[in-house]
Amino acid sequence: MIRIRQAGTADAREIDAMVRELAAHENSLEHVQVDATGWQRQLARPDVVVLLAEDDDEAVGFASTTRRLHLWSGGDLLALDDLYVRPERRDRGVGAQLMTAVARLAAADDLLVVWGVRLDNSAGQRFYARLGATLSTKMTAAWAPEGYRRHLAATSR
């Protein structure tokens, strides 16, 4: 029986382990800069909610969210950062249960939920469409410190 609950600071090591599993799966492990201590700090923040899926007290997945200001609406939205289910637990409804928990979290304040999905993740796209999500193509840009510092140096001459 899967149980979904909000992760607390005591769950930091488990969340850290699963984030690293997800990053390794996406060939992005070098981008993970936070460790279990950092997760303790993040899990204590009121704008961060990580939902933890457990089966007999064993962590099997998570959904990480942040509540943030949406300037166009003048209100907040709920940003889903990651949805992850451990490989041996996939295709058993855990992801759907986590997304249901995300929906309940958002419904409490009638928040828009937004997230990204990789263009090459067709299974994820089908899953989200089945939930009723609207999928649209939009490129994500990131400006890392080394990139904007080069820009600043070039424009300050």
Rank of each mutant, 00 (worst) to 15 (best):
I2Q: 06
I2Y: 08
I2F: 14
I2G: 02
R3P: 02
R3K: 15
R3G: 10
R3S: 13
I4F: 07
I4G: 09
Q6Y: 08
A7P: 03
G8A: 11
A10K: 14
A12R: 03
A12L: 13
R13P: 10
R13S: 15
E14S: 12
I15M: 15
D16F: 06
A17P: 08
M18S: 11
V19N: 09
R20K: 15
H25W: 14
H25F: 15
E30W: 08
Q33P: 01
Q33C: 13
V34C: 13
V34P: 01
D35A: 06
T37Q: 14
T37K: 10
W39F: 14
W39D: 02
Q40F: 02
Q40D: 06
R41S: 12
Q42H: 08
Q42M: 15
L43Q: 02
A44E: 13
P46E: 15
P46L: 09
D47A: 11
V48A: 12
V50C: 11
V50Y: 00
L51Q: 01
L52W: 01
A53M: 00
A53Q: 01
D57R: 04
D57T: 06
E58I: 09
A59C: 07
A59D: 06
V60T: 03
G61C: 04
F62C: 01
S64I: 04
S64M: 04
T65V: 07
T65N: 12
T66R: 05
R67T: 14
R67A: 09
L69N: 06
W72D: 12
S73K: 13
S73T: 15
G74E: 11
G74I: 03
D76Y: 06
D76S: 12
L77V: 07
A79W: 14
D81C: 05
V85K: 00
R86K: 09
R86V: 06
R89H: 15
D91F: 05
R92E: 15
R92Y: 02
G93L: 03
V94C: 03
Q97N: 07
L98T: 00
T100C: 07
T100N: 12
A101V: 01
V102N: 04
R104C: 08
L105P: 00
A106D: 10
A106T: 08
A107D: 10
A107V: 11
A108L: 10
A108S: 09
D109E: 15
D110T: 06
V113D: 05
V114G: 03
W115R: 04
G116M: 05
V117F: 02
L119G: 08
L119A: 10
L119F: 05
L119K: 09
D120V: 02
D120E: 11
N121W: 01
N121V: 03
A123Q: 12
A123N: 10
Q125C: 05
R126Y: 02
F127H: 04
F127P: 00
F127N: 07
R130Q: 09
L131S: 04
L131V: 02
A133E: 03
A133P: 00
T134H: 08
T134I: 10
T134R: 10
T134A: 10
T137S: 12
K138C: 08
K138E: 14
M139W: 06
M139A: 09
A142H: 11
A142D: 11
W143F: 08
W143D: 07
A144D: 11
A144Q: 12
A144N: 09
P145N: 06
E146M: 01
G147Q: 14
H151N: 12
L152P: 03
A153Q: 14
A154S: 10
A154E: 15
T155Y: 08
R157M: 05
